[in-house]
Write a protein that binds this DNA or RNA. Sequence first.
DNA 1: GGACAGTACCATGCAATGCGCAGTACCGCG
DNA 2: CGCGGTACTGCGCATTGCATGGTACTGTCC
Lengths: 108, 108
Amino acid sequence: MDATQLLKGVLDVAVLAVVESEDGYGYDVVRRLRAGGLEEVGDASVYGTLRRLYSAGALTSYVVPSEEGPHRKYYGITPQGRAMLENQRKVWTEFARTMNQLLRGEAA
Amino acid sequence: MDATQLLKGVLDVAVLAVVESEDGYGYDVVRRLRAGGLEEVGDASVYGTLRRLYSAGALTSYVVPSEEGPHRKYYGITPQGRAMLENQRKVWTEFARTMNQLLRGEAA
DNA sequence: GGACAGTACCATGCAATGCGCAGTACCGCG
DNA sequence: CGCGGTACTGCGCATTGCATGGTACTGTCC
């Protein structure tokens, strides 16, 4: 099964949702996404998404230089990110409903 | 709203589902998809998808040279296409469930 | 009869995005 | 001191939907 294409356009929302529930750093977000069912996400994809969302103003970031281990770049959601999340949530829900109907053969 | 990325990886299944319910030619499949809710699909995307699925052996095709109007290239689903559809249907359903949970904050 | 809209199909090039792979850096353990 | 685990980054690739523009045929309106 190749769910990789399904992720396109959805990883953003997924990451936003995870970060909204609690601030997190890249490596941690990857683990939480995998634990949540998206077991095949590549770490590079998540890091890239985080950076993209940050550039878009949806996330803030603060580095925590850990004394025991590599530093951690935490990300938190901004009001703008929250708005984006709400919007995308709706888009996804609507889209999923449409697809479910289509796949059931109810073309209308 | 930009649902264009959501289509990635899903257009295949959608097209298969539509063709499964009844043979159709490109222009017609576009209309049926739009009527089904995917109002923003570009025609070129559908034609491309049909050709791709045909190359993959999921569809057969037969041209009907109409006496009144341009010819129509009809597509029908093959056993292989039907298998692909069933499989993808499951993948989609599973994926959608996972996403719905994640978006609800139920990371587990 | 010529312009135009509608039907029907196709090719080309682009943009977005997830991934693989490689690299850097730091830690504790045996 | 090497190794595995943690944590982040950069580069180049593959997939795939889209915009644009082109071909071709038909009927309608002026």
